[in-house]
């Protein structure tokens, strides 16, 4: 186990290095110098050149990269051009909101997809299976932002049931339970949009794994001995189908963070996705790069976690050479 773990970590190191290199090169590709928007108009070009030289702007690219890397490893991703504040602080502020949205979407996905996948996996080629199949096809074919707009039109504009933007009602001063209810109402639409696409994917996976398990000899043998259905399904079938789920969930996190970008932008949800869109609009490259680096590292960490968890629940993986 330890060897397997060590191998995965060793593989992750060059990947992490590659990620940092890509991000750094992108930082360097951007037009303008780092003092745009930072120095006042009274600074003469000569003074600016002196400043640039003093901060190592003329050093070789490799030296600059290593300096940047050292700072990034220490958690310093530079300053936002627009707000003049540390990038890590800005990301930290928005992280909670994205976590709330992604977490709600994840819970919603699991609550719907687990029973549904089990059901259609056990009753393959039935009416429900066909309906779910076709619906899954439609769901993966609808652009998330179009789905968002349809939901906003129906539930917010026409039926006036749900709010469309932000985390809380602007101007309202709710406390305690009223505040929770307000946030929950704001969560419904964006979390549903995020969850719907994932439900289709997860359901498809579960259907495949459950229907494969049903055909396995050990399950057939249990059924063949006349053991009641529910005593086969829950302890044997479900346990084996659920085993890879923990891995899937950890791989789901980066996918959710990525698709949250569009959803947050549309629903004005002040999370990391919305922040990166604002950074693009304001040409705030340090902020943008900080977010990209952050998301890439989170993705890498989740992949690593998935590997480890998978090896934990499935001995075949860690025992394989």
């Amino acid at each position: 186990m330890l060897r397997h773990l060590l191998r995965r970590v060793l593989i992750a190191i060059p990947v992490l290095f590659g990620i940092s290199l890509v991000v750094y090169l992108l930082v360097n590709l951007q037009p303008g110098d780092p003092f745009v928007g930072m120095v006042g108009p009274e600074t003469t070009p000569a003074e600016k050149a002196e400043l640039l030289r003093r901060y190592g702007y003329d050093d070789p690219l490799v030296v600059q990269y290593l300096r940047w890397l050292t700072r990034a490893l220490a958690g310093d991703l530079g300053y936002s051009l627009q707000q003049g504040r540390p990038v890590t602080a800005l990301i930290g502020e928005r992280l909670g909101n994205t976590g709330l949205l992604a977490g709600a979407a994840l819970v919603l996905t699991l609550v719907v997809a687990l029973p549904l996948g089990l059901f259609v996996g056990l009753r393959r080629n039935g009416g429900v299976d066909l309906a779910v199949s076709v619906l899954s096809f439609v769901l993966v074919s609808v652009p998330a932002f179009f789905l968002s707009m349809l939901l906003i039109k129906v539930f917010a504009v026409d039926l006036r049931l749900l709010p469309t933007a932000g985390v809380t009602t602007i101007g309202a001063d709710y406390h305690g339970f009223a505040h929770l209810r307000d946030v929950a109402l704001h969560l419904v639409l964006p979390a549903s949009v995020l969850a719907l696409g994932n439900i289709a994917v997860l359901n498809r996976y579960l259907r495949a794994s459950v229907s494969e398990l049903v055909d396995q000899d050990f399950i057939r043998a249990l059924f063949g001995r006349g053991i009641p259905r529910r005593r086969v399904i829950a302890p044997h079938l479900l346990r084996n189908a659920a085993r890879p789920l923990i891995t899937i969930v950890s791989l789901e996190i980066p996918a959710l963070l990525s698709s949250a970008l569009l959803t947050e932008t549309i629903f004005n949800w002040p999370g990391i996705g919305r922040l990166s869109f604002e950074a693009v609009q304001g040409r705030d490259y340090p902020l943008l790069m900080g977010i990209v680096l952050f998301l890439a590292v989170v993705t890498l960490a989740c992949n690593l976690l998935a590997d480890v968890l998978y090896a934990l629940v499935d001995p075949r993986v860690r025992l394989a050479p």
Binding site: I19, V280, M289, V292
Partner: peptide, 16 residues
């Protein structure tokens, strides 16, 4: 390495 970058985040960065 390429797969670690979430599509929309890196796509809008490149487009910008």
């Amino acid at each position: 390495i390429v797969m670690c970058f979430p599509f929309y985040a890196i796509a809008i960065t490149l487009a910008a």
